[in-house]
C-alpha cells in the first residue's frame, strides 16, 4: 500500500511539473514577448518595458519558469495586469463558487446514477431497463448549457422557484447560496449522470458473466445477493474511472455553465482574462484547473486501491 501510494504521489508530482512546463511554454514562450502581447500593437515601448519589469520577464527562460513555479508553490500567482491585485486573491474568491459547484454536481450525478444503473442492470432486458437506457441516451445528447437555459426559463422565470442567475455569496447564508447553485449543478449533473448510469449498468452486467458469480450462485446466493455481495465491488473499478474522468468534464462544464447563470466563478475570471489579454490570470487559472484534474486522478488511484486488494499488495 505504501509502495503504491508513493508511486502514485511520484506520478502526481511528475504530472504537475510536466503540466506546468506545458502551460509555461504555451503562455510565455509561444507569444514571443508576453508584455508586448498583453499591451497590444499600439503600446508605447516604455510601457512595454515597464510591464516586462513588473512581470519579471527580464531573466532567462529557466529563471522565469522557476520563479513562476516557485511562486505558485508559495501561493503567489503574480499580480493581475488588469485588476492590479494579486491573482491569488482573485482566484480564492472565485474558488468558493466553482469548487462547490463542481462537487455539488459530482455528488448529484453519482447519487442519481448509481442506483439508476443498478436498477437497469437488475431489470436488464425488461421495460424498466429499456426506459432507463432510452432516457440516459437522451441525457447524454443534451448540451448542459442548453439544458441550463431550459431550466432557467422553466424553474426561474415561468415558476420562480430558483434564482435565474447571480450568486449572493456564502456570507448571505448557506441556503440562499446553495439555492443559487442548485440549477447550475443540476444542469451539469444530469448529462454526466446519464453516462455514469450506463457505465454502472454495463459494469454490473459484465460482472454477472464472471466465474465468481457462478461460484456464489453455487453457494446458494440468489441472483440479487450475488450482485450485491460480489458484483458491486468489482463493478466499482470501471465506475471509479468514469467518476474521475467526469470531474474534469464537470470543471470544464462549470466554466461554461457559469456563463449561463452569471456566476462569479473561475469561468468568468478566465474569460475576462482572455478578452483583456491578462496572461497572468489565464496562466494561473489554467494551472489551477489542471492541478485539480491531476489531483482527482490521484484520489481515484487511491480509491482503486481501497476497492482492489491486488493493487494494495503492490502488483
Amino acid at each position: 500500500m505504501i509502495h503504491y501510494t508513493a508511486t502514485r504521489l511520484l506520478s502526481l508530482t511528475l504530472s504537475l511539473v510536466a503540466a506546468s512546463l506545458v502551460v509555461f511554454a504555451v503562455v510565455e514562450v509561444i507569444p514571443g514577448d508576453p508584455a508586448a502581447y498583453m499591451l497590444g500593437l499600439n503600446a508605447a515601448p516604455e510601457a512595454v518595458e515597464a510591464l516586462r519589469d513588473e512581470l519579471g520577464l527580464t531573466g532567462s527562460l529557466a529563471e522565469r519558469y522557476f520563479s513562476w513555479a516557485g511562486g505558485m508553490l508559495r501561493g503567489d500567482f503574480g499580480t493581475s495586469f488588469t485588476y492590479r491585485v494579486p491573482v491569488a486573491d482573485l482566484v480564492a474568491q472565485r474558488l468558493w463558487v466553482s469548487v462547490p459547484l463542481a462537487i455539488f454536481a459530482l455528488v448529484l450525478s453519482t447519487l442519481i446514477a448509481l442506483p439508476v444503473g443498478m436498477l437497469a442492470a437488475a431489470r436488464r432486458g425488461r421495460a424498466t431497463d429499456y426506459g432507463i437506457m432510452g432516457a440516459t441516451q437522451l441525457g447524454i445528447a443534451v448540451p448542459n448549457f442548453w439544458f441550463a437555459m431550459l431550466l432557467v426559463v422553466l424553474l426561474a422565470i415561468t415558476w420562480p422557484i430558483f434564482p435565474a442567475g447571480g450568486f449572493p455569496g456564502w456570507d448571505a447564508g448557506f441556503w440562499p447560496a446553495l439555492k443559487a447553485l442548485t440549477l447550475p449543478a443540476v444542469a451539469l449533473a444530469l448529462p454526466q449522470a446519464s453516462i455514469l448510469a450506463r457505465v454502472m449498468r454495463s459494469a454490473l452486467i459484465e460482472t454477472l458473466g464472471q466465474d465468481y458469480i457462478r461460484t456464489a450462485r453455487a453457494k446458494g446466493l440468489t441472483e440479487g445477493q450475488a450482485i450485491r455481495n460480489h458484483g458491486m465491488r468489482n463493478a466499482m473499478i470501471p465506475v471509479l474511472t468514469i467518476i474521475g474522468l467526469q470531474f474534469s468534464f464537470l470543471l470544464a462544464g462549470a466554466i461554461i455553465i457559469e456563463k449561463v447563470f452569471f456566476l462569479p466563478g473561475l469561468g468568468l475570471l478566465i474569460f475576462q482574462g482572455i478578452t483583456q489579454r491578462d496572461l497572468v490570470v489565464v496562466e494561473s487559472v489554467v494551472m489551477l484547473l489542471v492541478f485539480a484534474v491531476i489531483l482527482v486522478t490521484f484520489l481515484v488511484d487511491l480509491a482503486y486501491a481501497a476497492v482492489d486488494p491486488r493493487l494494495r499488495h503492490g502488483r
Binding site: 504530472s15 474534469s248 470544464a252 489554467v286 484547473l289
Partner: peptide, 9 residues
C-alpha cells in the same frame, strides 16, 4: 499529461 487538459482548457 494531455488527459489533464480538458478540451475547454
Amino acid at each position: 499529461l494531455v488527459f489533464a487538459f480538458p478540451s475547454l482548457v
